[in-house]
């Protein structure tokens, strides 16, 4: 059984919002819902100011607090590590939104389209009925793509058709997807590097989505096993 994971390289991310847009296109999410998003912050104070682009999505935690607080067992974790919401079971109590440390969950209030009184576009009309109002929506690593791809014998993370939309659309190749338990996969090798980190590990969530830091020199990254550059 694979354990799906993603590595996002903050040095490569240029903050183009391609992941955010491609996720919207793939999952037809209503206004206000951005399952993949980029938080841009200015940090430091003049004259030492820098910008950090932090792409965020569900971390697919190994110990997901969203799942343990869910009173209806609507939030479940698959054996391959993907955490998802069974919308039929969800009663919309929003406890999971309170418990998720990463802001990865969204309440679907209603599915008004992006164009107000003009009604839904054909694309919206086609995609929105897939979401149940009054429930919570979250990123599930595009499990529909993974499942359909694997059924065809494709390899998620390698074959585009079986890989999350945000990953294949990232023009900077900042996102890598694959099986963390397969030592030969690209994600497993990236995660093995000393600089790879999880967001706020102190929450005890043990995320399967990992990051490589923006503040590092590139050279040692090209030589696996080399000592990490001083940050």
């Amino acid at each position: 059984m694979p354990r799906w994971g993603m590595v996002i390289d903050l040095l490569k991310c240029i903050g183009c919002y391609g992941c955010q847009t491609s996720c919207k296109a793939e999952n037809a999410t209503p206004p206000g819902v951005t399952l993949a998003r980029v938080e841009v912050s200015e940090v430091g104070s003049y004259p030492n100011v820098s910008r950090v682009n932090l792409p965020l999505l569900c971390m697919q935690c190994n110990s997901p607090p969203c799942q343990s607080v869910c009173p209806t067992e609507a939030t479940q974790k698959r054996p391959d590590g993907i955490v998802f919401v069974d919308a039929e079971k969800c009663i919309g109590c929003k406890y999971c939104m309170i418990a998720c440390p990463y802001g990865a969950r969204y309440f679907v209030e209603d599915v008004r389209g992006y164009f107000g009184n003009q009604g839904l576009t054909p694309y919206e009309a086609d995609g929105y009925p897939g979401h149940r109002t009054g429930t919570v929506l979250k990123c599930d690593y595009c499990r529909h793509r993974i499942d359909a791809g694997m059924a065809k014998g494709l390899k998620p993370g390698v074959d585009r058709e079986a890989t999350p939309a945000c990953v294949i659309n990232c023009m900077a190749k900042a996102r890598t997807f694959g099986d963390l338990d397969d030592p030969n996969s690209e994600v497993a090798q990236l995660v093995a590097r000393a600089q790879a980190f999880q967001l706020n590990p102190e929450f005890g969530t043990d995320p399967n989505t990992r990051y490589l830091p923006a503040g590092r020199s590139v050279a040692p990254m090209e030589t696996p096993g080399a000592r990490p550059a001083k940050e």
Partner: peptide, 9 residues
Amino acid sequence: LIVRARFRV
């Protein structure tokens, strides 16, 4: 969220 102790988002 702490990005490697340097940034807070």
